[in-house]
């Protein structure tokens, strides 16, 4: 997994609440047996019209969202199905950071495990970012080590909370299974004790 320390990039604004993983990646694209190549299907039903053309009215297709690597979204982002194809698609499309007031639990975990940083900020700060970014290119710097977000021009500055364990994993790009296997003795002892 790629380590994430300080990330600087353009933002895309998605002013919608309860965006579920069925929208992030519709089910007709869940049939692949690989982990890669899902970016082309991200938000498929919103991004493309039925004739296959890009829909210019969808936020990710705005010129201001070109090459965005930071996604700003509303409450309860990533709700619904546990499909990890959702973070795979976001990542493959180029997103490394998501900023929203709240997430579904499974989606949040899935992001961290794939090297995407999901930042929780209070609603008013998220709406301020949306205002700043919704009609023009808007670059943010996300500093995970110091848990800070800032821009150059509009004077936005915020700190965010993150579980220290998830933070360490993201900073180092660790593979969680190797960490766990260091506790093999504990797992074995547990299995003996409760006889599973």
């Amino acid at each position: 997994m790629e380590a994430l320390t300080v990330h600087e990039g353009n933002t895309a604004v998605l002013e919608r609440a309860n965006v579920d993983t069925d929208q992030i990646i519709p089910k007709q694209f869940l049939k692949r047996v690989e982990r890669t190549g899902f970016g082309q299907f991200l938000f498929f039903d919103w991004r493309f019209k039925s004739d296959g053309e890009e829909d210019p009215s969808f936020e990710l297709n705005y010129p201001s969202a070109a090459n965005a690597s930071i996604l700003i979204a509303d409450h309860n982002f990533g709700s619904g199905s546990s499909r990890e194809h959702a973070p795979w698609a976001l990542q493959d499309y180029g997103f490394r950071v998501i900023i929203a007031p709240s997430y579904s639990d499974i989606f949040y975990n899935n992001c961290v495990k794939n090297g995407i940083l999901p930042v929780r900020l209070p609603e008013d700060q998220v709406y301020e970012l949306m205002q700043n970014g919704n009609d023009k290119e808007y670059h943010l710097t996300v500093d995970l080590q110091n848990q800070q977000i800032s821009d150059k021009d509009a004077g936005f500055q915020a700190t965010f909370e993150i579980d220290p364990y998830w933070k360490e994993m993201l900073l180092n790009g660790w593979d969680e299974i190797s960490i766990t296997l260091q506790y093999e003795e504990d797992i074995e002892a547990y299995e003996k004790r409760v006889k599973v």
Binding site: S82, E84, H85, P87, N110, K113, E176, I177, T180, L181
Partner: peptide, 21 residues
């Protein structure tokens, strides 16, 4: 009983455990 993502599926297959707060 709870749902998990595919990375966690791999983690459980390999270790029969999960990190959970």
């Amino acid at each position: 009983a709870f749902g998990i993502g595919t990375s966690e599926v791999e983690h459980v297959l390999a270790t029969q455990t999960l990190w959970q707060s």
